[in-house]
């Protein structure tokens, strides 16, 4: 192993709490501990700032002290640290950590609320694509309509939770004062057709429909699996086109 690699591995060990890097540092004036603390502090503060930017509503929901405490504990685990220099991709496992972290463990709804925020973050930086228009659909030969496979917009994110995330979010944003944590599912479609992120709280049937589209199921197969009497495909299609949910379509070949 090269000397440089040993030195760099020693830094990782010291960050984990085994002081093996210190022997490389020249002793001169300011103590080795103080010199090293500048780097540790900078790393931790950068990661903390990244989490607060990715999960602003989670921070608001549980308060800065509690959220900062969870973040520090998360960052202190080597397995949580970034795997690439692109910090935009980092932090997806924070919601899972909140599930295990003792101070937040009693807040059963919290991990799902954080997962919802992560999906918002993903939608923000997703690939750009023009939403599918009704005129594009009008060009399809009617005999192939059942074979259509819609493609969700690259920014579209679907999530379903057993907790009323919509009302929790309304409390966080100040739209309502309190929420009863009843057993009511919340289904959400997050999408950024252009600049702004749109959050649509959707019904079970819409969620099922979009989930099957996401799996690449042809339209006719989806309609066969929707059992809700009140479901209106016309309204569903209108909602989808109006909100830029689809970016393209393909015609499924039955052969």
């Amino acid at each position: 192993m090269s000397n440089l690699l040993i030195l760099q591995k020693n830094f990782l060990e010291s960050f984990e709490g085994t002081p093996s890097f210190e022997k490389h540092i020249k002793i001169k004036g300011v103590s080795v501990k103080s010199r090293l603390s500048v780097y540790y502090s900078s790393i931790i503060q950068t990661l903390l700032r990244t989490l607060t930017l990715t999960y602003p509503l989670t921070w608001k929901l549980i308060g800065e002290d509690c959220a900062d405490g969870a973040a520090y504990a998360f960052i202190s685990k080597i397995s949580s640290l970034p795997r690439s220099g692109n910090l935009d991709e980092w932090g997806a496992s924070f919601p899972n950590f909140l599930e295990e972290y003792p101070p937040t463990q009693p807040l059963k709804y919290l991990p799902d609320f954080a997962r919802f925020e992560w999906l918002k973050h993903k939608a923000y930086g997703a690939e750009e694509s023009s939403p599918l228009t009704i005129s594009a659909l009008q060009e399809i030969d009617p005999k192939y309509l059942g074979n259509i496979i819609f493609k969700l917009h690259p920014s579209a994110q679907l999530f379903s939770s057993p907790f009323p995330l919509d009302e929790i979010m309304a409390v966080v944003t100040g739209a309502i004062e309190s929420v009863t944590l009843e057993n009511r599912r919340a289904n959400v479609l997050i999408i950024r057709p252009d600049k702004a992120i749109n959050i649509h709280w959707i019904s079970e049937s819409y969620f099922s429909f979009f989930s099957m589209i996401w799996k690449g199921t042809p339209l006719i197969k989806i309609l066969e699996n929707i059992y809700e009497d009140e479901f209106s495909f016309d309204k569903f299609l209108s909602f989808s086109l109006r909100n830029g949910v689809f970016s393209d379509y393909a015609i499924h070949n039955n052969q």
Partner: peptide, 10 residues
């Protein structure tokens, strides 16, 4: 910034 698959943001 990078060792053992870990990226230190500094």
């Amino acid at each position: 910034s990078r060792v053992g698959g870990i990226h230190f943001p500094d």
